[in-house]
Amino acid sequence: MKAMILAAGYGKRLRPITLTIPKPLVQVAGQPLITYHIQRLAKAGLNDLIINHSWLGEKVEEALGDGSQWGVNIAYSAEQEPLETAGGILNALPLLTENSDDSTPFLVLNGDIYTDIEVNSLTLPEGMLAHLVLVANPDFHPDGDFCLKDGQVSHKADTPDAKAFTFSGVSVLSPRLFAGYRAGETLALAPLLIEAMKQGKVSGQYHDGFWADVGSIVRLKALEDYLQQRRS
C-alpha cells in the first residue's frame, strides 16, 4: 500500500517560524516533523511515499531527497497554491494509483500531527470508500468531528445524540472516493467523507494511544517537551 503525507499548507499558525521554513521541516526535538512520519512508515514496511507541497516546496524536496536515507522511495506532488486536503490527494492520484487500479486503497496522513498509531495494521474493509482513525477530543476541538458505532462512522450532524470524536488525520482511502472530481480543484476532504458516510461507506476505529496536532506554537512546544521527556 502506498502512503501520502499531506504537507502543502502554509503553516500560518506557526508563524513566524514558517515564514522561512515550510511546515513539514519545522524542527521538533531535534528533527523535522515530517521525518517522524517517514521513519514510522519505513518501519511499517510502507516504502512508496508521496508528499505534496506548495509553500517553500523546493526546500522540502532538497531536505528529503528521494527518501533513500530512510530506505523509502519518495515522489513529490507539487501545488502552485495549496489545494486543500482532497484537492491535494486528487492532484497526486496518478502517483497514488500508478501500477494499480481504482480499487487499490492508500494511506493518508496529515503532515502536522504526531502519533503512535500502528499504520501497518490499518486496512480498508471491503465495500468501504474510507477508513478513519478517530481520537479523543483535544481541548482545542472539544466538539469532535464524527461519531463511531460498531465500526461505522457517521457525521455528528446526522447522529446528534451520539458522542463525537476527532478525526486524527490518519485514514485509508479508496481512489473511488474521488470519482467525479478533477485534478486541480481546490477541495476539502470533509464533504467527500460526509457524502460517503451517508451511503454507509465509511468505517473507522478509535485510537487511545498518543496523538498530537502541531497546529500552533503552543502545541509545537508541548510535543517537543513530550518527546524530550521520552528520550530522557
Rank of each mutant, 00 (worst) to 15 (best):
M1F: 10
M1E: 12
K2R: 15
M4W: 00
I5H: 08
I5M: 06
G11K: 05
K12E: 13
K12G: 09
R15H: 10
T18I: 06
L19F: 05
I21M: 10
P22H: 00
V26L: 07
Q27E: 14
G30Y: 06
Q31L: 04
T35G: 00
I38D: 06
Q39L: 07
Q39P: 03
D48T: 12
D48E: 15
L49Q: 11
L49S: 10
L49V: 14
I50K: 11
W55I: 07
L56D: 00
G57Q: 10
E58V: 07
E58T: 14
E61D: 05
A63L: 07
D66Y: 01
Q69Y: 02
W70Y: 12
G71V: 09
V72F: 13
V72W: 14
Y76H: 08
S77N: 11
S77L: 00
E79I: 02
P82W: 08
P82T: 04
T85A: 10
G88K: 00
G88D: 00
G88A: 03
I89Y: 05
I89A: 02
A92V: 00
L93R: 02
L96R: 04
D102V: 02
P105E: 13
L109Y: 07
G111Q: 11
G111V: 08
Y114H: 15
E118K: 11
E118W: 14
V119P: 03
L122G: 10
L122W: 09
L124I: 00
E126A: 12
L132R: 04
L132W: 14
D139A: 15
P142E: 13
G144P: 06
D145S: 04
F146M: 04
L148W: 06
K149R: 15
D150T: 04
G151Q: 01
G151R: 02
Q152R: 08
V153G: 05
H155C: 13
A157N: 09
A157T: 08
D158I: 07
D158C: 09
P160C: 11
D161N: 10
D161L: 08
K163C: 06
K163G: 02
S168C: 09
S171P: 02
P175W: 01
L177K: 04
F178Q: 03
A179V: 01
A179I: 03
R182Y: 01
A183H: 09
E185T: 13
E185A: 08
E185H: 01
T186I: 13
T186H: 10
L189W: 05
A190N: 07
A190L: 03
P191R: 01
L192N: 13
E195S: 13
M197Y: 07
Q199C: 00
G200Q: 09
S203H: 03
S203M: 06
Q205F: 03
H207F: 12
D208E: 15
G209D: 09
W211T: 00
A212G: 00
D213M: 03
D213L: 12
V214T: 07
G215A: 01
G215L: 01
S216G: 14
I217W: 05
I217Y: 10
L223K: 06
E224L: 06
D225C: 02
R230P: 03
R231W: 05
R231V: 02
